[in-house]
Design a protein around this nucleic acid. Structure first.
Lengths: 197, 197
DNA sequence: CGGAATCTGTTGACTAAGCAACACCGGAGC
DNA sequence: GCTCCGGTGTTGCTTAGTCAACAGATTCCG
């Protein structure tokens, strides 16, 4: 058998766990103070107290590290609110939208000056996880439209709306939960097509 | 050339630095919550996230670890108050006495229930460093009594007085700097014999 | 008492991390 | 143009840390 995914997360060499967390932590501290572009692999390894070669044993480059960080960060937010392992409901959908809104908002504030590579990685990761999550929510029953299609549409819709909301600088940008209330009917009607008849 | 002592402290393998600090930190957190006797090597390595064998690569046993911890702790206090690298004066001597008082006091409070092995290690370490420090203070000039003798006497005197002071439970135990003022003349007169004529 | 359980030190084989050196690239500055 | 400099990936060799297993020692409890 190839290594079990659940094992990979928990029972791995303590050195590896340490090193990864040192890299992640150093990276997170450097991001706000230097911006993504100007933080170098050297900066990270220096702050983490590890050798530069060790970094490359874990990540191909700093972009992969960013990718991984976003993935972990968003996943953590999802799990914190127990949105994984639950079913579809308007209530849960609203919480999900709020989560995305806040995540995108704080993520962008972590990386100044704002950087297209950064933002597109956030977008890709978040949409991807959204899509997977929604699909699980819908997959439990048969329906008019298949779960994957509905999940894809909804994840793009949510992310697009959040982007627009987030770019409402200063003026009239409502708090995340007000925003969620506004867009909820739109997304919900979309998803109900994939709910049991 | 054998490895320079100054290099040993700074330019050593990052893994070694990490591991030692993990051990120290775990130990310090465990001491107050379990007491020295009931802290096992397993507890320490578990909390530090290292392998038990790795512990034994750094310290022969938990007593050696305690010894090292006390040494580091006291040295840090001395350096914080810049008592190393300075000369003899009543002012400096008073600060030194206060430092010892506070160190012994907080050290004992860190280890409950109080333990004879613990206390005797504190005593040995502190007296040893005291002796060395005082000797350096006195060594700068000729005098009636040689520096080593005076330093030894003074370090024992200081430690003995501090112990007595520290065992004045609750009642009438003055703060460290009042205590220092009381005993200062005693120690000072002792040391002045080793001062330049 | 006796044995079950737990902690201790120690060993040898394996793996991750460190280090130094390399070629390579892209920009800054003369 | 040119070099110089700083960052990037990559390599092979060394060293620290991990793991599992071992034989004592100690404690605990029926």
């Amino acid at each position: 058998m190839s290594p079990n995914p659940r094992e990979v997360e928990e029972k791995l060499d303590p050195r590896v766990k340490r090193t990864r967390s040192l890299i992640l932590q150093a990276f997170m501290e450097l991001l706000p103070e230097k911006g993504f572009q100007s933080v170098s692999v050297q900066d990270i390894t220096e702050k983490a107290g590890i050798n530069r070669a060790t970094f490359y044993a874990h990540f191909p480059d700093k972009y992969a590290l960013l990718d991984h960080s976003i993935q972990q960060g968003f996943r953590a937010e999802i799990e914190k609110r127990m949105l994984d392992a639950c079913h579809y409901s308007d209530e849960n959908l609203k919480t999900l939208i709020i989560t995305v809104s806040e995540f995108v908002s704080t993520a962008n504030s972590h990386c100044k000056p704002s950087n297209p590579q950064f933002e597109s990685l956030v977008e890709a990761q978040v949409k991807n996880q959204l899509q997977g999550l929604l699909q699980v929510w819908l997959e439990q029953d048969d329906a008019q439209i298949d779960a994957k299609t509905a999940a894809t549409a909804a994840s793009w819709a949510i992310y697009g709306l959040v982007l627009q909301w987030n770019h409402d600088k200063n003026k009239k940008k409502p708090p995340a939960d007000k925003f969620a209330d506004q867009v909820l009917p739109l997304i919900a009607s979309n998803l109900r097509l994939a709910q049991p008849a």
